[in-house]
Design a protein around this nucleic acid. Structure first.
Lengths: 210, 210
DNA sequence: TCCCGGTGTGAGCATTTGCTCATATTTAGA
DNA sequence: TCTAAATATGAGCAAATGCTCACACCGGGA
């Protein structure tokens, strides 16, 4: 029988047993990332950590990157859920309240798995499929942009979508910097206050207190 | 396996000839980074690109990281010079002028070697000695903080150093995001306008409108 | 019950990696 | 000119890497 051209080296787990295996592998990848970092996160190392044969890893993951990708996707989904859940609640809120809640949601998301988040940000190259985590902030940009557009007249915004882009970039910068350099600030109130002020003043200064 | 304490496998070039060699190696490292990225930037690859034997590379660079480090240091120094040069000139300027000039300096620095900058930001892990480039924005934080402190009463700033930290983080975020996702925006005026507004409004809104 | 596809195994291959070292060549300066 | 130090060479090693493959095991449906 002639071997057919290999299309997808990655199988989908069909039985409960193999779904467990995949779960174990992804969890092990996370542990290796946390303990030894991205460089050391090799397929053999992950297999050992998972207590599973290297062959089993390659049943479901075509290469090293796909392992990290799986971890990223889960983490990202977790963050996204946290954010969107909160954002949905402040439909009719006024500006200062809405902004403050969004900032809180952002900070809450960062606190979910700070160590993992840090490793992913610090060590995983923003290249190919692995750039996905860094697009996290882009995930909720549509929400922010939509909100700003709906309120553009009231706020006197000329380019709501540009404003959304700038604000998200700015928040991402401050939050990431704090995550990597001053992790403890995440737990204190300073950051929230500063971000709220940054956003509100940019949006017209109406509700910004000195 | 006994781990012997290796002190410095790296020599300092003493003669003109060897200084040339080092130069050639660093330039080659830059080219490899640009062409093939960080992963592919191996010592053997660099030696080949430089047209130099692998032994020569190890005369002056103890390992792969030190090669990238050398590239980073040069690039960083170039950026720093561009920034500081401009910042020195606006000692007595008023707020809007000073801010605008700083933003311009920041953007000018990004335009120096955008491709290299991008590779370093995207692919080099922020770990060990290699995190240095990411501390670039921290380089001019003292200048900004000093300026803000000197003008704190006039601006009504309670915590000038915190303000500097937040502002630099915010600018870094917006600029990095643009660099990686919307490189063409660097050439247009939009970014400058937005950053100026972001900063001025945060600093009290006094000079925010033009 | 039995069979066959889904699942799990791990020795081990082909490369690549970072790096060494014995040797050769070039330079400075006496 | 001559010599010792500085510099350059590159074959090649030990270890690690990503990954394959031939085979064994398991489990659910006929």
């Amino acid at each position: 029988m002639p071997a057919r051209a290999r299309v997808s080296p990655r199988k989908l787990p069909k039985q409960e047993r193999s779904r467990d295996t995949v779960e174990v592998i992804v969890k092990a990848t996370t542990r290796v990332l946390l303990k030894d970092g991205y460089e050391a996160c090799t397929t053999n190392r992950v297999a050992a950590e998972a207590g599973v044969s290297i062959g089993s890893v390659y049943q479901y993951f075509p290469n090293k990157e796909s392992l990290v990708m799986a971890v990223m996707e889960r983490h990202q989904e977790e963050l996204r859920e946290t954010m969107v859940e909160r954002l949905a609640q402040l439909a009719g809120a006024d500006l200062p309240t809405a902004v403050r809640e969004m900032v809180r949601a952002l900070l809450a998301a960062q606190r979910l798995q700070p160590k993992l988040h840090r490793v992913l940000l610090e060590q995983v190259p923003r290249i190919g499929a692995l750039r996905r985590l860094h697009e996290l902030h882009g995930l909720y940009e549509p929400y922010v942009a939509a909100w700003l557009e709906a309120n553009a007249p009231r706020l006197g915004l000329a380019h709501p979508s540009v404003a959304a882009y700038v604000l998200i970039g700015a928040c991402e910068g401050v939050v990431t910097r704090v995550m990597l350099e001053r992790p403890t600030w995440l737990e204190e109130g300073v950051l929230e206050e500063q971000l709220v002020r940054l956003i509100l003043s940019y949006l017209g200064g109406a509700g910004a207190k000195r």
